[in-house]
Amino acid sequence: MDRDAQLVAAVRAADPAAVAKALADGADPDSAASRFTVTVLSEAVSRGRVEIARLLLDAGASLRARMPRYQSPLLSAVTNGHLDVIRLLVDRGALDVEGTDRGSLLAAAIAATRHRPRAAALEVLRYLLELGADAAPDEETPIVQAVLGSAAPATIRMLLSHGADPNARRSDGTPALILAARRGDHAAVDVLLTAGADPNAVDGDGHTALMHAIERNEQAVSTALMLAGADDAGALEMARGWQRQRFQFHLGEMSVGLDDVPIARTAVRLHPTGYELRGDAADLRRWGQLLACATQALGDDDWDARTGTPYELAHTVAHRLIDEPAKSPTASWHCIELTTAELATVRQALVELAYAVRVTLPDGLGQEYVHDALDELDAQLP
């Protein structure tokens, strides 16, 4: 076995003595098991091997990622929640060579509190915040990242305690409170309200968090907002328009019925008794346009291979969503019935547009609309 292979084996065996010997014998401190793998330093820090990391750094191991598509040693340590290793890397100058091509360290730390929820992950986040870490220029603000990522209340409180603005807005102008309300995240709503978020802040459509909560039938969220003093000026009309009778009682009506009240909706709802999409005709038409956009971008062969749903069916559903939604005979919304396979094509189109293909979206729609639509559809699927 050559010296570099001995070093790789020693690192993987978590044997500091063997690592020291391999390095003394002339092994390359930037060795990798193959050209397709990370360096031994990245492997050591991902496992929290601080003593081995120190030996490799003393021998001149690079603090940079081996290839652009790989995580740097520091980002790997943050992702895996190893605070002692992070401190060592920072002391050796890792912050000075860290790039943002793969996203910021702070974004990785916020995500880690959800994907690997340990006390250590929260301490890593605290440490980075104390160092002054912030979002990369092309990222949303940290508090918006946390809300969009369904971060735990402890994560949101940590960000707020280090100066995050509870009234921060997403790049499209939507307040973090409304993002949390739309997602039904009553814990995040409560934390933001407690920190001073404005319960009556509006988005680009002039809708408040309470109006969004009522549209999406989010009882716990609406209760938190009303207890915080949210204005019900537009909320009652929203409740009437969606025939949310329980909310109408909460908002002070003494008697309610199945009102047919026209409103400007922001949600497309999946009726629980079947795959019937309900919403404004304009939104249903936008969903059809998005589906058509995705199928056109991929073409028939790629669509079939990537989504597992037939291209011709997707093409048909796109036209149905654009042309066929009909006004309900008992309410002001429009609706269209879809089969399981048809609904699957809609979801696959949203997934492709959100995470894979990059095309010009119709009607000036942004990626935020696509992600919001996908999140809300997924939340309603059985």
Rank of each mutant, 00 (worst) to 15 (best):
D323Q: 06
R358E: 15
L353Y: 04
V370A: 11
P362S: 12
T316P: 07
A373K: 08
E337C: 03
L350F: 07
T307P: 06
L353A: 09
V317N: 08
S332V: 02
A326L: 05
Q367F: 03
A356M: 11
T330R: 02
E368T: 15
A305D: 13
D323G: 02
W333D: 01
A344G: 11
G299Y: 06
L361K: 11
W303H: 10
C335G: 09
S332K: 00
D301P: 01
A326F: 01
A331T: 01
W303K: 14
P329Q: 09
K327E: 06
P362G: 13
T307G: 10
R358T: 10
G308C: 02
H371T: 14
H334L: 03
A314N: 04
W333R: 02
V357G: 01
E312G: 05
C335T: 10
R347A: 09
D300G: 06
A356P: 03
C335E: 12
L365M: 14
Q367S: 14
V357L: 05
P362L: 13
E342I: 01
E342K: 04
E368N: 15
A331L: 01
K327P: 00
Q348W: 00
R347N: 12
D302E: 14
V351K: 07
A331R: 01
A341C: 06
H315Y: 12
Y311K: 08
T360C: 01
R320T: 05
L350K: 08
I322T: 12
H371I: 12
R347P: 12
P362Q: 09
C335S: 14
V346I: 13
D323R: 06
S328L: 00
A349R: 11
P329M: 07
V357P: 03
G308V: 04
V317Q: 03
Y311P: 04
A354T: 04
C335A: 13
E337D: 12
L350M: 15
L361V: 10
Y311V: 06
R358M: 04
K327L: 00
E312K: 13
W303D: 07
T316F: 09
